Amino acid sequence: MFYLSKIEHKLTLPPSLLALPIGEAIHTELERLFLDKVIANLGLCVSVYDIVSMEGGSIFPGDGAPTYLVVFNLIMFRPFPGEIITGKLVSSDVDGLRLSIGFFDDIYIPTHHMPNPNRYEPENRNKNKGTWFWDYGEEIDSSFSINYTDEIKFQVQSVSYPPIPVEQPKESKPFAPMLVSDKWHFRRKQDRLWRILR
């Protein structure tokens, strides 16, 4: 789930940070540039782990800031296919479920990865939002509604990095630079009942 990635980057240090010790100033600028950003094929940057080396400090003509060549390690979040993670429900719509693991909210369970038999009941006011139900048996009370208090264990199916759109319609969902698609496993918190589905 978490990896160390070694990066080499040419860094221009802003003059406002020059009062700090050089290592602290470079670390601060690296955090500003990379923290909470997605790097394609590496994942989401969670933290700057350490600085391996820094060279340079040259000030080029017409520029008032020193430039360094910095080699450093980043802690990256990148789940692997087959990994099982626990998340909380963020939203439920006709296309499936959207989950969060606290620091990352772009986890989707599409309808074809949900357990069968299932059904979707839209809200009265908004047909795009509603509640999913898992009908696991023939009895009267053999239906689980998927609520916002539930924990959902899911198995990662794929991680993708879609290309950044040039234009995005106003009605569309916010752009997510890293998408995790998964297959769900369900855990209801209240009664501690585990149901693992295949």
Results as ranks from 00 to 15, higher is better:
E31C: 15
I85L: 12
L69F: 01
F60H: 04
A176G: 10
P15E: 12
S5A: 15
T12G: 01
M114V: 02
S16T: 05
S145M: 06
M1E: 04
F186S: 02
F103N: 11
D141Q: 07
L33D: 09
N124Q: 10
I140M: 06
F104D: 04
S172T: 08
K6P: 06
P174W: 08
D141I: 00
R188W: 01
Y136I: 09
N41T: 04
W184Y: 04
E55I: 02
W194I: 06
T111I: 15
W194D: 15
A19Y: 15
I107G: 08
N41Y: 09
P79D: 08
R78N: 03
I51V: 15
L30Y: 11
Q168G: 00
V94M: 11
P117H: 13
A40F: 03
E171N: 13
N73D: 15
L74G: 01
A40S: 13
A176V: 01
I164N: 09
K88I: 01
N73R: 15
F34N: 11
V46R: 10
T28F: 08
S181Q: 13
F133W: 12
L33A: 07
K183N: 09
M178G: 10
N118H: 15
A65M: 04
S142W: 01
Y136V: 06
I26A: 07
L13G: 08
E121S: 07
K10H: 06
K127F: 07
S160V: 04
V52H: 12
V156H: 07
V52A: 07
E8N: 14
K173Q: 13
G137P: 00
I39E: 11
G102C: 10
L33V: 07
P21M: 12
T12L: 07
G137I: 03
H113P: 00
L17C: 12
P169Y: 06
D50G: 11
I22D: 03
P110M: 04
P81V: 10
W194C: 09
